[in-house]
Simulated scan of single mutants.
Amino acid sequence: MSHNLPEIVLPQNQWITLPNKHFSFATNGKEASQNTIVKLKADDEYLEVEFECQQNPYWKQNTYQQHNTEMWNQEVFEVFIAEGSETPVRYLELEINPNNALFVGWIDNPTKEAPQNLTFVPYEKAGIKHEVKASGETWTGKMLIPWALIGGKKEVYRLNFFRIVSLQSQADPDWKCTPSNCDFTCWSATMSGATPRFHRPDAFGVLRLK
């Protein structure tokens, strides 16, 4: 990647708020207008992620209610994470939407450009504690991600955070996000060019546990 990777140092049992409150567009790295607040905490059992998605007036039009469905077609908050400091070719993808539906799957991406395989983790086996609240134009949520789900607690991880934001009202309940009706934003921009893409693990930032 042509830009420096962001790094998080996370002391045990302490909350850290990511300093950049605006994610960047996946395509070109320019700062998005919406506020996206992310907080992290780690203990011996969980990585806890809390987020706040602001300037999101159409969140009620999200129609995905079931876990492990094609939730990326509408508004979501996402976490991609893998253990180790190297660019991963296999990583865990987590998605949560305004209806508190959860997506958990392992992604195989040997080219580091496009997923080749998705293996769902059954909801009951994932062990993720999660909740969502929404009011006005803001929806917030949290996920407690067991370290055991990622292979046990380690010192270093590669990760990224993503948000899809609907920009217009949708009449069709089966609507799908496109670059013309949604913003595709990243904590660490994937710099994917004309088409927004999240699955570019070279762009994942670094998480170090203390």
Rank of each mutant, 00 (worst) to 15 (best):
M1S: 13
P6A: 10
P11W: 03
Q12W: 09
Q14E: 14
W15L: 07
W15T: 14
W15S: 05
I16M: 01
P19V: 14
P19H: 12
P19Y: 12
N20S: 11
N20H: 10
K21W: 08
F23Q: 01
A26G: 05
Q34P: 03
L40V: 07
D43F: 11
F51C: 04
E52G: 01
N56H: 09
Y58I: 00
K60D: 00
Q66N: 13
H67I: 08
N68E: 00
E70V: 13
E75Y: 03
E75I: 09
F77G: 04
E78W: 07
E78G: 14
E78K: 08
V79P: 00
I81G: 00
G84F: 07
E86M: 11
V89A: 00
R90P: 01
L92Q: 04
I96Q: 03
N97I: 09
A101P: 14
L102V: 15
N109F: 08
P115R: 07
F120M: 13
A126M: 11
G127Q: 08
I128P: 01
K129Y: 13
E131D: 15
K133R: 15
W139K: 03
T140N: 02
G141I: 06
G141R: 08
K153M: 12
Y157E: 00
L159I: 05
L159K: 05
I164M: 15
V165F: 10
Q170W: 12
P173E: 11
P173D: 12
D174G: 10
P179V: 15
C182K: 04
C182T: 12
D183Y: 11
C186I: 02
C186M: 02
S188H: 13
M191N: 03
A194L: 07
P196E: 03
F198G: 02
R200N: 08
A203F: 09
A203N: 02
V206C: 10
R208K: 12
L209D: 00
